[in-house]
């Protein structure tokens, strides 16, 4: 155990690891906050769909030699609003439509990749994450996005609760619910694009869904769930990174496994009657 801590302290002395940790903690925090609302509004599929659209956008940006984040942020943002509209309209089967869009985007991404660079290390990084490969520019942009998301979330907390709990009531009593749905979708899009570089397109949605679901096993107030999800998400991120450094497993996958362990622990605690 003590050698693991020593290893950790040593790793943190490297500049690029410190940067990765800073971005990771911020992204994990944002993802968890937004995740509570997404899970409760049954929009979890949007997160998954967006990450696949993000992969497609990244692949195209790469093949055109464009900056990956600057291209994918607007593309994913637009798709977020589109997916939201699909989910809101009860006419079409929302989840099926999202599945169609996400797999189509993934397919297009894969084709573009195979026609240009081929399945190289870069592509693999986008699919499964490469937290240490973040460039300095990526880091600054990621931190800026994450801080903006945090501030907007905290300032809109009461509205977000009202719209999540009972959208009809919020609308009827003068809150522009669709505006807050757009805000949530927009913030989610940003977090997914930024988080995708570190977690990978295949795994980022777990960062959004897991902490919220885990916190709900035990906590019974909205605020409790939000705070617990945020703390858990950061904790699981750090533990996942430690495992990844310690036994050289991929970072993204290790973080997901840490989240899975936390979920099982909380589910058992909830079953045993622990309610806060």
């Amino acid at each position: 155990m003590s050698s693991l801590i020593e290893l950790f302290v040593e790793l943190l002395s490297y500049d690029f690891i410190l940067r990765a940790m800073a971005v990771g903690i911020l992204v994990a925090l944002c993802a968890a906050l937004l995740g509570v609302t997404l899970v409760l509004k049954r929009y979890s599929m949007i997160g998954d769909g967006l990450s696949h659209v993000g992969f497609g956008a990244l692949a195209i940006a790469m093949s055109l030699n464009l900056a990956p984040l600057e291209v994918s942020i607007p593309v994913v943002l637009l798709s977020a609003f589109m997916l939201l509209r699909i989910s809101e309209s009860s006419q079409i089967k929302g989840d099926a439509a999202i599945a169609l869009i996400s797999s189509s985007a993934l397919a297009i991404g894969v084709i573009v990749v195979s026609m240009t660079s081929g399945m190289n290390a870069d592509v693999c990084n986008y699919m499964f994450g490469a937290i240490l490969a973040l460039s300095r520019g990526d880091v600054y942009l990621s931190i800026a996005v994450a801080v903006a998301v945090l501030i907007l979330y905290v300032l809109s907390y009461n509205k977000i609760f009202a719209v999540t709990f009972d959208e009809d009531f919020a609308k009827a009593t003068g809150t522009d619910a669709s505006q807050y749905n757009m805000l949530i979708a927009g913030l989610t899009a940003m977090v997914i694009v930024v988080g995708m570089r570190m977690m990978g397109a295949m795994l980022i949605s777990s960062l959004i869904i897991f902490p919220a679901l885990t916190a709900m096993r035990v906590f019974s107030s909205f605020r409790g769930v939000v705070i617990c999800a945020a703390v858990l998400s950061v904790l699981c991120f750090v533990i996942g990174m430690a495992i990844s450094f310690g036994v050289s497993t991929p970072a993204g996958a290790s973080i997901v496994v840490a989240n899975l362990a936390a979920f099982i622990l909380f589910a058992l605690a909830g079953r045993a009657g622990l309610k806060i």
């Binding site: 409760l40 300032l155 907390y157 909205f222």
Partner: peptide, 27 residues
């Protein structure tokens, strides 16, 4: 029409009635 499995306590639900009286970004 209100979700019955929602994690929110009674105080939070009742207080959310004031939501419409406030502009954006307020507590």
């Amino acid at each position: 029409s209100v979700r019955s499995d929602f994690p929110a306590n009674v105080g939070e639900v009742v207080l959310s009635g004031r939501c419409g009286r406030h502009g954006p970004f307020s507590f």
